[in-house]
Amino acid sequence: MRNVGNVISAMIEYYAGDVRRINHFLKVYGFAKAIGEMEKLSPLKQEILEVASVVHDIGIKNSEIKYNSSAGNYQQIEGPPVAEEMLKKLGYEDNFIKRVCFLIAHHHTYTDIDNYDYQILVEADFLVNIDEDQLSMDVVRSVKEKIFRTEVGIKYLNVLYNIDNIGI
């Protein structure tokens, strides 16, 4: 039976022993789920967003093996085939998998964001990466201005990082 819990379990097994990566996708999932619900996505878009948020970095393992790098451009290349195989085994249909794979293949590309599921995935990933990568407040303000578009994502960014709404 397909559900996000099964995807989370499969990803925990996939990243067995890599607590940092498991914690990362769980945090991104939490933010994506909350933002999607608060932004009132349709049930299908919400499900796509939640699954994509869990598997968004699935390409890191193969990127590190093939390129000795976890750079976003390599993740975007290596992730979709692995995700497709995993999601097929979990019972997801082709159109659903196609959209999730599109999101994986573009989650480090911040131009031409085509829908709320894509926008929210990018915002959720940034909310986590800002902390994990210890980005400076200047970078955080720039990301807010250039990337964030959803009302809830902006609110979370402001609250988490104590950004004054005025003049930013």
Rank of each mutant, 00 (worst) to 15 (best):
N3A: 05
N3M: 06
G5P: 01
N6H: 13
V7P: 00
I8G: 09
A10T: 00
M11K: 09
I12F: 12
Y14S: 03
Y15R: 07
Y15M: 02
Y15T: 01
A16F: 12
D18E: 10
V19E: 11
R21I: 01
I22V: 11
N23C: 02
H24W: 13
F25H: 06
F25Q: 03
Y29H: 13
A34I: 02
A34T: 02
A34F: 10
I35T: 03
G36V: 03
E37I: 08
E39G: 08
K40F: 14
K40G: 03
K40P: 00
L41E: 07
S42L: 11
P43C: 04
L49Y: 09
A52E: 07
S53E: 05
V55N: 05
H56S: 06
D57I: 01
I58L: 09
I58P: 06
G59S: 06
I60P: 03
K61D: 12
K61H: 10
N62P: 00
N62L: 08
N62V: 00
I65L: 11
I65Y: 11
K66P: 00
K66G: 02
N68W: 10
A71V: 00
A71M: 07
G72L: 05
N73C: 07
Q75I: 11
I77A: 08
P80D: 07
P80N: 06
P80Q: 08
P81Y: 13
E84G: 10
E85W: 12
M86T: 07
M86H: 14
M86P: 03
M86S: 08
L90T: 02
G91I: 04
Y92F: 13
E93P: 01
E93D: 12
D94A: 09
F96P: 03
I97S: 06
K98T: 05
R99T: 04
F102D: 05
I104Y: 15
H106F: 10
H107P: 01
H107Y: 07
H108C: 02
T109M: 04
T111K: 13
T111S: 10
I113H: 13
I113P: 09
D114R: 08
N115P: 02
Y118A: 04
Q119W: 10
D125T: 05
F126T: 00
F126S: 03
L127R: 05
L127G: 03
V128I: 03
I130E: 10
D131H: 12
Q134M: 12
Q134N: 12
S136H: 15
V139W: 11
I147D: 04
F148I: 04
F148Q: 09
R149K: 14
V152E: 13
G153D: 10
Y156S: 07
L157Q: 11
L157N: 11
L157M: 14
V159A: 13
V159N: 10
V159F: 15
L160G: 09
N162R: 14
I163M: 13
I163Y: 15
D164M: 04
